[in-house]
């Protein structure tokens, strides 16, 4: 038989503020301070079990939990969207454990936890962007041994990465890496920018916001302080290029944002929409209309509200 106990009014919560205990937070905070002092270097840390599976953003959550306080406003995005499962769950998690004030507006947020995108609206000084990183080691696919990659970073031996990019060019005529495109931070460490599209790489360079990276499963934390050089690796004759699209966003008409391709029927029709949901909504509210933006009132799906 299951006994249900109703907790009394004065019962203390079952866990500490922001879920992690103070000892763990201190450990993560010390790692973060060292990460900031050596931009792009991956600091090992004692990643904890979190109440969700590894690979669901446990690294980012632990970093956010270590930095969040009562005066923060938290925004969580997953592939640019505020309303996807992962983003909603993580937002709820911090609402419950840290009484966090949450927001979907990029400008209002002081902490932005992200999976796979940097918001389109430019980040400001004083904001912190926390990346969830599945694979913090950019060299891992080239060299599986941790002992070796550690030495390669120690001695700045990054020839292997250049060879990989060169082989891409030799075989395909261009670098085919489109996300998690390796960057050189502060002229010293080759770093994985987390699986953001290479479209977002230029936003990291000299960003006024502090960028923190947490990899829970791989137990690594790294950081890029504001106003730090972040250079996407390339060659003089094959300079780094970002993706471009032939048409603008179908909903808001934006020509400068990262677009997702959405298949809309079984005859091959498709539309391109902004991956950053808040950016797209803001533009539509400002009156920008994309070619495929339907009017719900005209189609009779909803009744028009009379003022």
């Amino acid at each position: 038989m299951t006994m249900h106990q109703v907790p009394a009014e004065d019962t203390k919560p079952a866990y500490n503020y922001a879920y992690l205990d103070e000892q763990t937070k201190r450990m993560i905070r010390r790692a973060l301070l060292k990460a900031v002092a050596v931009p792009g270097y991956q600091v090992p840390f004692g990643s904890r079990e979190m109440p969700l599976a590894r690979g669901w953003g446990t690294g980012g959550i632990q970093v956010t939990a270590a930095i969040i306080g009562p005066s923060d406003a938290l925004k969580v995005i997953d592939q640019g969207a505020d309303d996807t499962t992962n983003a909603v769950s993580i937002r709820k998690f911090f609402e419950r454990t840290a009484d966090a004030r949450t927001t979907e507006a990029t400008e209002e947020a002081t902490i932005i936890q992200t999976r796979h995108r940097i918001p389109e609206a430019p980040l400001k000084s004083g904001q912190v962007i926390v990346y969830q990183v599945p694979m913090p080691e950019p060299l891992r696919k080239l060299e599986p041994r941790e002992a070796e990659t550690r030495k390669m970073h120690a001695w700045a031996e990054y020839g292997l990465m250049q060879v990989k990019l060169y082989e891409n060019i030799a075989r395909f005529g261009e670098v085919t890496t489109t996300y998690d495109y390796p960057v050189l931070v502060n002229g010293r460490y080759v770093t994985a920018p987390s699986p953001i599209p290479k479209f977002d790489n230029p936003k990291m360079h000299m960003s006024p916001a502090l960028q923190l990276f947490g990899a829970g499963r791989e137990k690594r934390i790294y950081a890029i302080p504001p106003h730090t050089s972040v250079k996407s690796l390339d060659f003089e004759d094959h300079p780094f290029r970002i993706q471009s699209w032939t048409e603008p966003c179908g909903l808001c008409g934006a020509g400068d944002s990262y677009l997702d391709e959405v298949v809309i029927d079984d005859r091959g029709a498709r539309m391109f929409v902004c991956s950053d949901s808040h950016y797209c909504e803001t533009r539509r509210a400002e009156g920008h209309r994309g070619a495929m933006l339907g009017d719900a009132a005209l189609t009779g799906l909803v009744e028009e509200t009379k003022p």
């Binding site: 500490n16 503020y17 103070e22 937070k25 201190r26 905070r29 973060l32 301070l33 900031v36 002092a37 270590a66 930095i67 969040i68 306080g69 009562p70 502090l210 950081a223 302080p225 504001p226």
Partner: peptide, 19 residues
Amino acid sequence: DPVFQSQAAFRALLDALSE
């Protein structure tokens, strides 16, 4: 108030070392 005072102190340190 150890939880919030250490959080505030840490954020000041993080800001100091990142800028």
